[in-house]
């Protein structure tokens, strides 16, 4: 791609521009700010040390998310032997100033629904909805065929529909 000029510092520039995205995704995965930034740090260190393996391409992000998934899986294995100190349901974090009560409920409901999804479905819908990756990029990041991405996305979204109120505002919810 680059003729003559090297890509070494371009890599750094690209990597740096991905940090906000990595932090956001890690936060969504872990729901704990410090642990999420630990994950991002490990991911960045690993990306820096393995930068010679980056083959170039239109976007660095799928590769970075793939690294993050691997790091996350390693840490999860390490953690499995230790007791969990973290409450699973840490909502409210990341929830900004609510426009109104109904909207805040909808956000909390979505956070809970997401947390209840199987891990693979949750990652898929987060990469698509939160990070705006294309389906092909999600396939790269998760190392699965694109058909798998589509079926996971379908199942995730249908499950989220079932678990959240479709209509905006609590007043419209069905009363038995």
């Amino acid at each position: 791609m680059a003729v003559g000029a090297g890509r070494s510092l371009d890599f750094l520039t690209d990597l740096e521009s991905c940090i906000p995205s990595l932090r956001r995704y890690a936060r969504a995965l872990l729901r704990d700010g410090d642990r999420a930034d630990d994950l991002v740090q490990d991911c960045l260190e690993r990306a820096l040390s393995r930068r010679h393996l980056w083959r170039g391409g239109p976007s660095l992000r799928p590769w970075l998310f793939k690294i993050m998934h691997n790091v996350f899986a390693n840490q999860a294995r390490a953690r499995a032997s230790r007791p969990r100190g973290q409450p699973i349901d840490q909502l409210g974090e990341g929830v900004g100033v609510p426009a109104d009560q109904g909207h805040r409920l909808a956000l909390a409901e979505m956070a809970r629904a997401l947390a209840s999804l199987p891990e693979e479905q949750r990652r898929t819908v987060l990469l698509v909805a939160l990070e705006g990756l294309s389906y092909q990029e999600v396939a790269e990041a998760m190392d699965v065929p694109i058909g798998t991405v589509m079926s996971r996305l379908s199942r995730a979204r249908e499950r989220l529909r079932a678990l959240t109120a479709a209509e905006p505002g609590p007043s419209l919810r069905r009363v038995k």
């Binding site: 906000p20 956001r24 936060r27 969504a28 990341g94 929830v95 900004g96 979505m110 997401l114 939160l130």
Partner: peptide, 10 residues
């Protein structure tokens, strides 16, 4: 909703 949940991180 998903984007809004983590918008504050930015």
């Amino acid at each position: 909703l998903i984007r809004e949940l983590w918008a504050a991180v930015d």
